[in-house]
Amino acid sequence: MPSLKRILLSLMLLALSLQAEEIYATFNVEAAQHADLAFTTTGTVEKVNVDVASVVKKEDILAELDNSDLKAALDISTIAMKYAKRDYERQVKVKKLVDASRFDTYAFKYEHSKAQVAYQQALLDKTQLKAPFDGVIYEKSVEVGDVVSGAMIRTVMKIQSLKKRKLVLAVDQKYWKVLKPGLTFRYSVDGDNTVYTGKISKVYPYANDANRKIKAEIEAEGFTPGLFGDGYILLPDAK
């Protein structure tokens, strides 16, 4: 017996047009954005600020390595830059009265001190794992006290967009000439009898030679990534 989902979908499409030409497609739900996060330096995890299902904002610090030595080094570099800047500014005021090579020495010391501050800040930043975009943590495999290695990088967290999703369609390659952005897709998701409508936003520029399918994308919201569904793409004369 056909499922209720399939019956509802077929009846709606039939009501739209008995002569409608349609292209059947299946799809998987994926997060619009997702990323595997890892430390790129070596150290001991000192703080873990999130857990699975934590909602985060871009640049939030998710976890942090013990970095007291790097903070001290940054403080030292900042102080050195402060006094190098003062010396340089004094020399600028009397530039016409001093030897050019002497002036260049002070200019070099100031520029070098700025570079040192930037370098120490970069080292410190590597000890902080930050969210690359607004989203939700959906996997975590790190705890306080764990040791991570920059030489053997491993994923410690995974993040995905909170609500924005994309439906990745698989369409028979024989429709490559008519498949294009803007076409209407009417579909339902496994476990949900509601019939949804979306527009194709992207068509992948190749056909998979293993399954003879072309991929396309539909923008969506709210569905759980990993779900499966199917539906029909309506060609222009079906609108």
Rank of each mutant, 00 (worst) to 15 (best):
K5Q: 14
I7Q: 15
Q33D: 15
T41S: 12
T42D: 10
G43F: 05
T44V: 12
E46A: 15
V48Q: 11
V55S: 13
V56N: 06
K57N: 08
D60F: 09
A63H: 09
N67D: 10
D69A: 07
D69Y: 10
A72L: 08
A72C: 01
I76M: 09
K82G: 01
K93N: 10
K95L: 09
D99S: 06
D99A: 05
F103L: 04
F103Q: 05
D104P: 01
E111R: 14
K114A: 07
A118Q: 13
Y119P: 00
A122P: 00
K126V: 00
Q128G: 03
L129E: 10
K130A: 13
A131H: 14
F133C: 14
I137E: 13
Y138C: 10
V144H: 08
V147L: 13
S149A: 15
S149Q: 14
G150N: 06
A151I: 07
L167C: 01
V168E: 08
L169F: 00
D172G: 07
D172W: 05
V178H: 08
V178K: 11
K180T: 12
F185Y: 12
Y187D: 00
V189K: 05
D190S: 12
N193A: 06
V195G: 09
G198L: 01
I200W: 01
S201V: 04
V203L: 03
A207Q: 08
A207C: 06
A207H: 10
N208R: 15
D209R: 12
D209C: 05
N211F: 04
R212P: 07
I214C: 01
I218W: 01
E221L: 05
L227Y: 11
L227Q: 12
L227V: 02
F228S: 06
D230P: 02
G231R: 03
A238C: 06
K239G: 01
